[in-house]
Amino acid sequence: MKDTIDDINPRKEWLGTLAKSPEGRVGALLDQVMARPDFTWLRMPEIGSVMVRGRAGATGSPFNLGEVTVTRCSLRLADGTVGHGYVQGRRKACAEAAALVDALMQTENAADIRVAVLNVLEAERTEARTTRAAKAAATKVDFFTMVRGED
């Protein structure tokens, strides 16, 4: 199945992590690891939209639900490595940082970036999700049966 192949694509994973990152976080973490390398733009950061689709009855035919804002850019490092940045929202600086991280993950800096940027983003996301899930779980109804009077 296509999904199974996608699931083991590490670049797909990190690009997804970068896209969902909070405002300013990728750039801040990147700047803590290393000085930003020189690059040339292949595509300057641009703000656009993506039409989000749903499925009728959750599983049926697709329909257009509405759009979401997305910022994207592409750049090339001096050694020729190409990085793509896609982030949700209108965030040109974040798209640039994401594209740099994508490019650097294909270079000898990958291990450092993995530890200091991607692992941190993933941990923060997991923590936020866990907290939210725990709050939801606390609102789960525990039913109990009342004892009936006539018995």
Binding site: E46, G48, S49, V50, V52, R53, R55, R132
Partner: peptide, 20 residues
């Protein structure tokens, strides 16, 4: 005013992290 980059794959609501 926004350029359209494309359309998403249909969202998978079975994989929703449910608040409610």
């Amino acid at each position: 005013t926004l350029p359209r980059f494309g359309a998403s794959q249909p969202i998978d609501t079975a994989n929703m992290t449910c608040d409610r």
